[in-house]
Design a binder for these strands. Structure first.
Length: 558
RNA sequence: GCACCCAUAGCUCAGCUGGAUAGAGCAACGGACUUCUAAUCCGUAGGCCGCAGGUUCGAAUCCUGCUGGGUGUACCA
């Protein structure tokens, strides 16, 4: 929030410089305001002078020395002197800003007034965004990989909501096709097996225990009435119902709710698949070869064309994927975010080529491909095989670590990185476990405020408190961190990068724990106590808001 | 073979549209509990940012090539 004010000041000075003929417009939107890494370089720094200098040269205007530009800028900034304690020109032409301490202290009343809404944009941006994630077909319980995706998708959705978007969460699935047929056959085989009848388990069948459970339910409901039924439909339908129920229960445990479930089937029923083919054909982007229908993806930069309808007449997966995305476009979203596992990378270029071919702006789709999760136990990787159903489900992991730990761990790495989930660390209730580190910070703050209250030293009205007493360097650092929270949320939303929030919270908790060990909140000095209690309120609000933004709880005691 | 992702401290990883002297946690070593919760804190040590070029005032960050790992490359999804 302070950074934003500074940016506005600089923008004004930049414009003023243009009016005074000091430089041209060439550097607009190219310069940066950032927080310097090193002590002595101020609270903020800008490279504006160097960027102006560089752009002038590039634009063929006369080259101006960056340090000279910096001096001119500093002069212009004099009009905003109330913000700054000092402004320095350093190095090749950086301008370092040392803010007036009162600027930092002034954030506390704002935080306390905003409470739970601190960090959320105050106005909606009137943009609709669709986030598609999980999208697992109902063939079995959610695996760890789905878990990462579920948490990632939901948290990205929360971030976008915090940034003012109107967000819809959508789950796309397919209950037709070969996989589901095999699932039905698997259930049928287990059903017969449980009835002690001869059964042939399909070669590539689903071997998980849950298939027995589903078969058992069928027996409980219908006895052996289905023993001579060769059609797999009733088995398949039973399986789908049971598995979806299971998946939803798991998502519920994670606190994840979808606004819509879109069944691929709809695309067929409404003729949307055929329509896509017809439109592509009309544009000359489709041809027949070897009894199959091909889409000219080479026209879109790929190195080979792709089959969209097999010689059997069945579409390949890319055709409904394209049709589905076209439906998203038709619904008029400003932005569509797809979250897929890295194994789905092959469909991405096809889908984007498809929507582009149909006349839509494919840049409105952002695909997040997340890498896989490896589970570590006792320092060794836990081997998993989906086919043999020898994998750990999200449900089992939840039993072991709980929702807060699971969400936090799944968000600790950026999507691009493979994620190592250390079960030993996750189950440890100690300082090494970052989840507890952050939550403990929140609980400690709550405890301080409780204690003060018990002693009749409630924080009182913030307007009566002299925040100018918060002069310790640790206090200033905490205030700075708090002030940076809203911008961080916006940036994380823009970049679809929830891990930034995770890192921020660890850092903020660290600042607090460190401060706690050095200074006392509650002391004999009543005025100082009041000021520090406001600080603890502000800290608690930001820590709590951050945790909730990640879908976690913020405990008041631990 | 081709496409995408990754490569930063012993380990796990940050590093925001290129910025100034490279960051955190863990592990190692040494310290702090009559105190508002020690589930905490303080200190020490640890690096040709995979390799080689290029772009420029300036590169861990952008481009090219190479090496090593992951994923995909089907008329499977």
């Amino acid at each position: 929030m302070i950074k934003k004010r500074l940016q506005e000041c600089l923008e004004q000075c930049f414009n003023q410089g243009i009016r005074q003929g000091l430089w041209s417009d060439a550097a607009r939107n190219s310069y940066a305001v950032e927080i310097p890494k090193h002590e002595g370089q101020g609270d903020y720094a800008t490279n504006m002078a160097m960027v102006i200098s560089g752009r002038e040269k590039k634009a063929g205007n006369k080259k101006i020395n960056p340090r000279q530009i910096a001096e001119q800028l500093v002069e212009l900034l004099d009009a905003h002197s109330e913000l700054f304690a000092e402004i320095k020109i350093a190095g090749p032409g950086f301008i370092n800003f040392f803010m007036n301490p009162a600027v930092w202290q002034a954030v506390l009343p704002i935080v306390c007034a905003a409470g739970e809404s601190f960090g959320l944009v105050s106005e909606k941006n009137n943009k609709r965004v669709l986030v598609e994630f999980v999208s697992a077909n109902p063939t079995g319980p959610l695996s760890i990989g789905h878990g990462r995706q579920a948490v990632l998708g939901d948290t990205i959705s929360r971030l976008l909501e915090a940034a003012g978007y109107e967000v819809e969460r959508e789950y796309y699935y397919n209950d037709a096709g070969r996989q589901m047929r095999v699932l039905g056959e698997s259930v049928r085989a287990r059903y017969l097996e449980l009835l002690d009848l001869p059964a042939q388990f399909p070669e590539d069948g689903y071997q998980g225990e849950y298939i027995y459970d589903i078969a058992g339910e069928l027996i409980a409901e219908q006895g052996d009435k289905l023993k001579d039924v060769t059609d797999v439909t009733p088995f398949k339908e039973q399986a789908e119902r049971a598995i979806f129920k299971d998946i939803n229960a798991t998502l519920e445990r994670l606190g994840i709710h979808f606004d819509r479930y879109y069944n691929e089937h709809t695309l067929y029923e409404e003729g949307l698949i055929d329509d896509v083919v017809a439109r592509l054909r009309a544009k000359g982007l489709v041809y027949e070869k070897d009894n199959a229908v091909w889409f000219k993806t080479t026209e879109f930069g790929q190195n080979q064309d792709r089959v969209i309808i097999k010689s059997s007449g069945e579409p390949t997966y890319r055709l409904p994927d394209i049709a589905y995305h076209r439906e998203k476009f038709k619904r008029g979203y400003d932005w569509m975010v797809d979250i897929f596992g890295a194994d789905h990378i092959a469909t991405v270029p096809d889908v984007l080529a498809g929507v582009k071919a149909l006349g839509y702006d494919e840049t409105r789709v952002t695909v997040i491909l997340h890498q896989f999760v490896t589970l570590m136990r006792d320092g060794k990787q836990v081997k998993m095989s989906t086919r043999k159903a020898n994998f750990i489900t999200v449900d089992e992991l939840l039993d072991e670590v709980g929702q807060d730990v699971m969400r936090f761990f799944f968000l600790m790495r950026k999507a691009d990185s493979q994620l190592e989930f250390d079960l030993d660390l996750a189950t440890e209730q100690s300082k090494d476990n970052p989840v507890f580190y952050v939550q403990y910070g929140h609980a400690r703050l709550a405890s301080i405020l409780r204690k003060a209250d018990e002693q009749g030293q409630g924080p009182g009205k913030i307007s009566d408190v002299d925040l100018g007493l918060l002069t310790q360097p640790e206090e200033e650092n905490i205030l700075k961190a708090i002030a940076g929270y809203p911008a961080l949320v916006q940036q994380a939303a823009h970049d679809l990068a929830p891990h930034r929030i995770v890192f921020y919270l660890q850092e903020l908790a660290g600042l607090f724990h460190s401060y706690y060990n050095k200074h006392r909140f509650i002391s004999e000095d009543r005025k100082l106590t009041m000021a520090r209690l406001q600080l603890s309120r502000g800290l608690r609000i930001v820590l709590g808001n951050g945790l909730r933004l990640l879908g976690m709880t913020a405990p008041d005691s631990m």
